[in-house]
Design a protein around this nucleic acid. Structure first.
Length: 483
DNA sequence: TGAAATGTTGGGGCG
DNA sequence: ACGCCCCAACATTTC
């Protein structure tokens, strides 16, 4: 009987399409599924408050599904290298398998850990389970990484990712070596981000959260099936309407690896008999995720520094009260405020609205994109360093394939286009709920009678706009033009 | 994955 | 019938 193998779970919290787990099971010995809570090793981007909440639930779910197949999840805190050494000793294991991560800090850490283990004679094997294609698989004609999405996408379109692996039926566990550490207090679902912003009671936040999300592999599979059976066929038309459930909402599951992109890709392919165009549009979004990871791999300084170096000197403003108004959804622009409140209350925001609020922070308020990235990092359940970095640098115009400097979203027009009836605003900004659709995206222009009959008192029940968008746009054009 | 400013066209009112 | 103007609708350019 071979010695036990450790499977080091990180952001692959599933059993299906899990090459590291598969390798351990195939070896024939016992399997030790291990999760190590070591946020300091991911500095300067340790998991934010919303991510920690999701992670806690997802780990509990993973433990339950592993137990059903024979092996409980061991959760430890401490430095990864030391924890691995200790668990190797305690279990008599002689091999460690894991699926690769692509963030700079995790890469460095994993490289050191692998080298140290191998020096001690431990077998280490790592796998790709998080991306359709790894960062060095897709390069341009000169062997360099793509920096523009469209040619990158053309390369993706002609490839078929590897088919997903099945989940192992039985996992041979080891005797419980000792009681697994309970997940640390610092990792408990932390409503700090939502609580301070909304003033809601923790129980209320928790119940709203539970209604919105079902972390874990089973919930992820259910969400995927629901999407494929429901709005997927109409994806191109519905995906830009934040009031509708038109998107897959699989971003947190993809971030934590409760589903792999290969599973999603192939499931879409198999389901899309009658809607090939929609399938292509959806695959394109998966490709944006790939693109983001490729960029982070090849340009690891970009979470902190603009890809276009000239932007390091951009004269961002410092304005704590404007930043706070944005964070709390009190800017006076209903679409922006609705998005920021959806984020605070559910840990998620519709992608179209993310672009609008990002443009508002960066262009209308001239506040640094890094401040927006940090807030999203703390509050999003799907906070993902690669996606977050690409998104914010795109909005600020300082990244790859970035929005040109003159592209400034108008929150009123975006509202009219994407939320014509105002339902999204009504849901998240209830103080405007009774306002006529005509004025819901620009209450400051509504006639006094319309405001009165909707019970809106500008400056009291809902803020006046904190900037004049037309003037702010000109200010931004001037500042960005100088770059 | 924008929006505003500017240019062009064509229908209709009107003298 | 005709030219003129107005202006909405659409296209193009510009930021």
């Amino acid at each position: 009987m071979p010695a036990p193998s450790i499977v080091w779970f990180r952001r692959d919290l599933r059993l299906a399409d899990h090459p590291a787990l598969q390798a351990a099971v195939r070896r024939g010995g016992a399997v030790v599924p291990l999760f190590i809570w070591a946020p300091a090793e991911e500095k300067p981007w340790p998991p934010g408050a919303a991510s920690r909440g999701w992670l806690q639930h997802s780990l509990a779910h993973l433990d339950r599904t592993l137990r059903r197949r024979g092996a409980a999840l061991l959760v430890r805190q401490g430095r990864s290298a030391e924890v691995l050494r200790a668990v190797l000793r305690e279990t008599g294991a002689d091999a460690v398998f894991w699926n690769r991560l692509y963030e700079p800090a995790a890469r460095r850490r994993d490289g050191r850990v692998a080298a140290a283990l191998r020096r001690q004679g431990v077998t280490v094997e790592t796998f790709n389970a998080g991306l359709l294609w790894e960062p060095d698989d897709i390069l341009n004609g000169q062997g360099r990484p793509f920096q523009v999405f469209t040619p990158f996408w053309r390369q993706c379109e002609v490839r078929v990712p590897a088919p997903p692996l099945p989940a192992p039926k039985i996992i041979l566990g080891v005797e419980r070596v000792n009681v697994p550490a309970t997940f640390g207090a610092e990792c408990v679902n932390n409503p700090e981000a939502t609580g301070t912003v909304t003033g809601s009671a923790p129980e209320e936040v928790a119940s709203r959260w539970a209604a919105a999300w079902q972390p874990g592999e089973a919930g992820a599979q259910a969400r995927l099936r629901e999407f494929l059976a429901g709005s997927a066929a109409d994806y191109p038309r519905r995906r830009d309407q934040p009031a509708l459930p038109g998107t897959s909402r699989l971003s947190p599951q993809l971030h934590f690896g409760e589903l792999s992109p290969r599973q999603v890709w192939h499931a879409v392919q198999a389901a899309a008999g009658g809607w090939r165009r929609a399938a292509g549009a959806f695959r394109r979004q998966l490709a944006w995720r790939e693109f983001a990871h490729h960029l982070l791999w090849h340009f690891p300084h970009t979470p902190e520094q603009p890809l276009r170096a000239a932007y390091a000197r951009f004269p961002w403003r410092r304005d704590a009260s404007a930043l706070r108004a944005w964070q709390r959804g009190q800017t006076g622009f209903p679409l922006v405020d609705a998005g920021m409140r959806e984020l605070a209350q559910t840990g998620w925001m519709h992608n179209r609205v993310r672009m609008v609020v990002a443009s508002f922070l960066v262009k209308d308020l001239l506040l640094p994109w890094t401040a927006g990235a940090r807030w999203f990092w703390e509050t999003l359940v799907d906070a993902d360093l690669a996606n977050n970095t690409l998104g914010w640098q795109w909005a600020a115009g300082c990244g790859a394939d970035a929005a040109p400097y003159f592209r400034v979203f108008n929150p009123v027009l975006q509202g009219r286009k994407c939320d014509p009836a105002g339902d999204y605003v009504r849901r998240w900004v209830p103080e405007l709920a009774r306002l006529d659709a005509r004025w819901i995206h620009r209450p400051w222009q509504a006639p006094a009678a319309a405001l009165q009959c909707a019970g809106v008192v500008l400056g009291r029940t809902y803020p006046r706009p904190i900037v004049d968008h037309a003037a702010a746009r000109l200010r931004a054009l001037d500042a960005f033009y100088r770059m």
